[in-house]
Amino acid sequence: MSSSPSETEAAVETEPQAHPLQEYADEVAGAVGGTAEVQFDTIKVSVSNDSWVDAHLTARDRFGLVFFSWLSAIDWSNQVEVGDPLSDEVEERLELLSALGDITEGRMVTLSTDLDPETPVIPSLVEVYAGANWHEREAHEMFGIDFLGHPNLAHLYLPDGFLGHPLRKSFPLLTREVKPWPGKVDVEAMPEKPSKDEPSTENPES
């Protein structure tokens, strides 16, 4: 009975500077040449496009972050087809994220880099982390990011010949086009009860 549950939940700090992870985050950021930010126990180290692969090599070899958790992107866009628009104007960009961890102490670092949404190109991480293969394929079809040096950038989920990149904010959610959400139109009208005068409702085609 080491700690009460309330303590474990209360690890949230309002001041990023005071966060216990800040020191480690700064150390990683210094080594990979980026800037660190700790938000809600999540370390995000932003690096430039050019040092993307090198940053991963450093993180893997110097900090023992050998565990490749995931890779994905966020489409920061002021014009959204689905969901709520952002409250503040942002710089339009694709933020590529990759989460790395170690398998001893439980440290976790998210590396991030900004890509141009028009022509997002970045070297592939497959040589550094073999597991990046599928994640990059996913990011490729979902966001249209090109990973240079990837052995097989084929579609992973979507059928061949699928047009567009579904997780981009500019990609409409087609079901929502047909039926807006939420709203009263979402409730389908109940089928009308067959009245005694019209016994032929069972087969309207005939």
């Binding site: 490749f68 958790s69 995931w70 994905s72 966020i74 489409d75 969901g83 709520d84 952002l86 409250s87 994220l97 989460a99 998210t110 597991g131 599928w134």
Partner: peptide, 21 residues
Amino acid sequence: YLVSDGNLGPYRLKIRSASFS
């Protein structure tokens, strides 16, 4: 990975599932 913009729903939710990896 939850990205919220202060709305009713998330701006982006990345789901890292174990079986995929």
